[in-house]
């Protein structure tokens, strides 16, 4: 396949639809990462939560025959894990990074172990018939040329990712609880003296992040594929955290950053058909992540320097006016 064929395929509706599909398991955990980051106790166990929920969802839906029960169980497992993390960090006062790493390792090994116990296979859940969440076709929109093919017919989690981004932004910026959460993250002492319970606020943030990340995990195993594979989240829980910072710690910014990473991922799939070593192509999403973060940080520093300079200038002036 030649280069211009690849180029043309990138601008096709099918490709853009696949970008949205691939971005979804980044957007959902990234929203969770955003909320916890703003609360001051960043959840780095997103990866483990996604993996656990992906596994639980497949297993429960396969044994119960109900997609709904599978999703419910997947969510419950994600929330439970973040509760455990919160309990370790907030109640027992362990370092949240260490507790998070422990959970990630446990989730990797634990899912493989249980997979083996249940199916006798250490690689994937082929022998289980997982449920699949439904796709949504929207009568009017699907008839719009191009756009209809991009956004209609996506599975329910894609829609959920956008709806939840909207809800999260309302929660964070339009409700007292979200305001308290942001205050706790920025200056816990200030919040505490104003009667806001710092630990409870952080726990709630962690539980919400577990809820969101669990959907990310199930997107992988119950929508994108209908099978659980070992380590199938492949670092998405961490890339999601990168998206939070790249997105300027804002809900819609985070969504866009996650889509950028999704785009890089989708691109690497497309370029796989070119005669470039596949190992090189597969590094694209990660290189994009690193580049994006470097650029973001440089910009942040420049903004900070500027603000500091302005502040000093202003202050020197007010001092001069006294003398």
């Amino acid at each position: 396949m030649s280069f211009d064929v690849v180029l043309r395929s990138i601008f096709s509706a099918a490709f853009l639809a696949s970008v949205l599909r691939i971005s979804t398991p980044l957007i959902l955990p990234a929203l969770g990462g955003l909320i916890t980051d703003l609360s001051g106790a960043v959840n780095i166990a997103l990866e483990g939560i996604m993996l656990t929920s992906a596994f639980t969802g497949v297993v429960v839906s396969a044994y119960s025959g109900s997609v709904f029960l599978g999703v419910l169980a997947g969510v419950a497992s994600g929330v439970l894990i973040s509760f455990v993390l919160g309990w370790f960090h907030l109640h027992l006062e362990t370092n949240i990074i260490l507790a998070g790493i422990a959970i990630n390792i446990l989730a990797t090994g634990g899912t493989i172990f249980l997979l083996y116990v249940l199916t006798g296979d250490k690689g994937n859940s082929q022998s289980l018939a997982s449920g699949r969440v439904p796709n949504i076709n929207i009568p009017l929109i699907q008839d719009i040329p191009f756009l209809g093919r991009v956004i209609s017919g996506q599975h329910i989690f894609v829609w959920l990712a956008f709806i939840l981004t909207w809800l999260v932004s309302i929660y964070l910026y339009r409700t007292p609880w979200g305001t308290h959460l942001r205050a706790v993250g920025e200056n816990p002492q200030a919040a505490e003296t104003m009667g806001i319970n710092v630990k409870r606020t952080r726990m709630i943030a962690l539980l919400i992040s577990g809820f969101l990340a669990s959907f990310g995990g199930m997107t992988m195993s119950m929508a994108y594929l209908t099978i659980f594979q070992r380590e199938m989240t492949a670092g998405r829980g961490f890339i999601a955290l990168a998206a939070v910072y790249l997105g300027g710690r804002k809900p819609w910014g985070t969504l866009l950053a996650a889509i950028l990473f999704g785009f890089a991922d989708a691109l690497s799939h497309q370029l796989g058909s070119l005669r470039i070593p596949s190992q090189l192509v597969q590094t694209i999403p990660y290189i994009v992540t690193i580049l994006a973060l470097v650029i973001y940080n440089l910009r942040e520093q420049a903004v900070k320097r500027e603000r500091r300079r302005k502040f000093q200038e202003q202050h020197m002036q007010s001092m001069a006016s006294v003398e």
């Binding site: 007292p176 308290h180 200056n187 919040a191 806001i196």
Partner: peptide, 25 residues
């Protein structure tokens, strides 16, 4: 000072006792 730097003056003053309207700020 016990202030939240990224919040506005008004947001800092009402922090913890925010006036609401149908659940929203």
């Amino acid at each position: 000072f016990m202030l939240v730097p990224s919040f506005t003056v008004a947001e800092n003053i009402v922090l913890g006792q925010e006036p609401t309207q149908r659940g929203l700020l």
